[in-house]
Design a protein around this nucleic acid. Structure first.
Lengths: 227, 227
DNA sequence: GTCTATAGAAGGATAGAC
DNA sequence: GTCTATCCTTCTATAGAC
């Protein structure tokens, strides 16, 4: 089994892998059964034999990809680290994962927008409120210190997702725009692992200092630091 | 002209508007000439009469949308404001624009990924390096004070875009996830106008303070501020 | 299980009447 | 300019031989 070639793989598995590639590249609407059969090196009627229809095949692929993404997301926030360590860990791990799977964000965001019915069943399992409640409770002391209230958690969580997901969702755009300036996308992502973490931590620690509505607190804080 | 109904509009314009709606909703691959004709209330052969082919019609629509987005982006950074004022202005204006055009981010990002050849000609006009050089030069004093080097500008610009674009690109996802937690997307965006600005400003002002690699610089800066 | 052949529907595009 | 009718291609899906 160690020297198993593509052709030795089970047919169903080969279909699934080819379909994954094609769907990620072209989306559901842009993909053709024939393309998938070609990439899997077989007759297209075999796809119907194993998966009944294009839609069912897509659902199988979509579920796998959604789960893959999800599994990488949540566990990052478990474990016995400080808030700052968790943030650094998240950006390093999640951006590394996306470097290996650069097309997942664009694929998922697009299909969610084009076929929202299709994704409801996957989202039913996700309780995002748990995620931010868990995070908040675990790090209440640190967050209190920075004047971050529980109500800010949705903004904070989505901000972290923005910082990692957007560059990949907009990869084609950035590659094109950066190219003219002599910047390589890969270098930019590598740099982002620490930039995003520094940025996030710095913002959290000092939001009260920069918020004009909190002038009084700022002055109080400044005094504290000076003494 | 004031009481002009849909039916009085010029045919070409009606086609263009219907096409814009359908393409934004379903993407190029998912849109059907027949859908557009139906929405415009006319025979589908008229679309060919005016636009020759589906692709040409799409190009016209795409160019209009890309320009609309672009025109809203750049001018935000002109004018004689402080860096902080510009950042606040950007988040307020850009998020307000997206509130009125919530599907543009998902549409643009998707088409850019699915049909990159098609967008090269639009991107040729954009020099993003100019944008960040301009910003950097205009606010060199403020940025120096915060130890933000010119090399950080790509990270900063893309971070600002992330914070506004991502929530709309992922709108369907967020609506679904927030719904269970009793959060309304519109409220979240409204709150984001100030949150993102506060967050950005706070991060910029204090990145050196939070970056462990810059301990020495932090102390130097603290001293400067105290005297 | 895998292939060939083909049904059957849908989509883009055009010719030609008015 | 606008409509009807129709061509041609492409796509999903199935029937049936092996």
């Amino acid at each position: 089994m160690q020297f198993m070639t593509d052709h030795d793989k089970q047919t169903e598995e080969r279909i699934f892998e080819a379909a994954t590639e094609v769907f990620i590249e072209k989306g559901l609407d842009g993909s053709r059964i024939q393309d998938i059969a070609d990439r899997a090196g077989m007759n297209k009627s075999l796809l119907h034999y194993y998966y009944r229809s294009k839609d069912r095949l897509f659902d199988a692929v979509f579920e796998m990809i959604a789960m893959k993404m999800l599994k990488k997301f949540a566990p990052v926030f478990e474990g016995d680290l400080t808030l700052e360590e968790k943030i650094r860990f998240f950006f390093r791990e999640h951006l590394s994962f996306l470097q290996k799977n650069p097309r997942l964000p664009a694929f998922l965001l697009n299909e969610v927008n084009r076929h929202p019915e299709r994704i409801r069943k996957f989202l039913a399992n996700i309780n995002i409120e748990n995620l931010w409640k868990m995070l908040y409770d675990q790090h209440k002391d640190e967050l209190d210190q920075y004047n971050i209230t529980r109500e800010k958690m949705p903004q904070i969580i989505t901000t972290m997702a923005s910082l990692t997901v957007f560059p990949f969702a907009a990869k084609m755009l950035l590659v094109e725009l950066f190219g003219k300036a002599g910047i390589k996308f890969d270098d930019y992502i590598e740099e982002r692992k620490t930039f995003a973490a520094d940025f996030m931590i710095s913002a959290l620690k000092n939001m009260n200092r920069s918020n004009p509505e909190d002038e009084s607190k700022i002055k109080k804080n400044d005094n504290k630091k000076k003494k």
